[in-house]
Design a protein around this nucleic acid. Sequence first.
DNA 1: ACCTGAACACCGTTCAAGT
DNA 2: ACCTGAACACCGTTCAAGT
Lengths: 232, 232
Amino acid sequence: MPRTRGRAPAGGRAEALSQEIVVGAAVALLDEFGERGFTFRLLAERLKTGSGALYWHVANKDELVALAADRVLGDALTAAPGPAAGAGAELRALAIAVFDALDRHQWAASHVTAPPTLANALRLLDRIGTLVTRTGLPADRRFAVATAIFYYVTGVSAQIIVPGPAGGAVPSRDAFLDQTAEHWERLDPAEHPFLTRVTGDLRDHDDRDQFIIGLDLLLTGLDVARDPRPPA
Amino acid sequence: MPRTRGRAPAGGRAEALSQEIVVGAAVALLDEFGERGFTFRLLAERLKTGSGALYWHVANKDELVALAADRVLGDALTAAPGPAAGAGAELRALAIAVFDALDRHQWAASHVTAPPTLANALRLLDRIGTLVTRTGLPADRRFAVATAIFYYVTGVSAQIIVPGPAGGAVPSRDAFLDQTAEHWERLDPAEHPFLTRVTGDLRDHDDRDQFIIGLDLLLTGLDVARDPRPPA
DNA sequence: ACCTGAACACCGTTCAAGT
DNA sequence: ACCTGAACACCGTTCAAGT
């Protein structure tokens, strides 16, 4: 039972404020209004408190958003499936679980920084490193490879998951892709020989599949690094 | 010769404003003061104009920063070395040139979005796609692989290159790493079996090398995808 | 120890007015 | 067509005062 020292909370709030409550409310508002629409005033209102009160629980807005993003990572870790057939498969499932969690909270990906210092980012890197170890990779390469996978997951997710304008409003991803594809089609084929030929792929592609394709390239590379075969 | 219609520019500015001049000044100020310290007022002052004048040349601050980031990508493209021995080697050199350019302008990486719409981002993806084509990868996989490499380069760069506080002030990356390593050392080895064993690697690692290690994993994966060998 | 809410310093953007 | 600069609406953060 949480001790409630000092004055009882005002308004309708049942519990005293805590960092956990503040971060939880921040996640909800970031989901709802996006990073743009998320303000301390709004958060204070939602928590029925003064905006100054928040500074008792977090140092500033940057720290709060970082903590909110770390909580999203925590969701991914608990959502990730358990032991699978082989460390490689488990690594793949973990990475996809993180992508999916970040996709559900589009503002979050760009706030996961490296090297990790927050609790769930640390857990994630540790789990990746443990799985990399289990693939049999020599000890002197484990840190670099684990970090590379961590960077891929968070960095590429942030690149793919562009935080659409508002939370609920989806201004049609298809419309955006169509518009971009038309733009590419109007380019000069002499200057853009590749792009002018792949507009069909652009229209059809799926973001999650794209993430997985790159991930599989990376994991294949890991496989080769672990067990190099002589050139044919 | 640029036509200068209307009133001659005030103050000491020799030329009329243009989007090119505005973006150039924005890059300089972003380098100097970081994204935090970069304001339209400061930019207007630097250009000896009113802050409202900037809105004649760019729609808003977001667009201006995106254009500034795209210019950094342009630098990378002109800096990238020419034809190398093999498409794979050229791909690798191009990716590293982009990383280096983004490293020189730490605010830029997180503002390169996908799918690309700005001029230099389009050039970069086209160049990557052309090189991927030259490796001999079948047509139906080129788009996905080229995009994966593009995402890796921009996304992982953004993750690795954390925009230090101010522009010139370097609050010692080593100090930060030391501090993080100490943090990891204090973790419970039962909960973090991997991290507590790699603090040495953390202290010693080089960001650019890390980028390249992941890149090489990816390119190895591409190599295998292009020319799959039967399992041993 | 924790909360309140007004006050401060600042910022992006707009716009009527100029040339 | 392009620039000026004041004005508007808003925001993160601080802090004296409360309990």
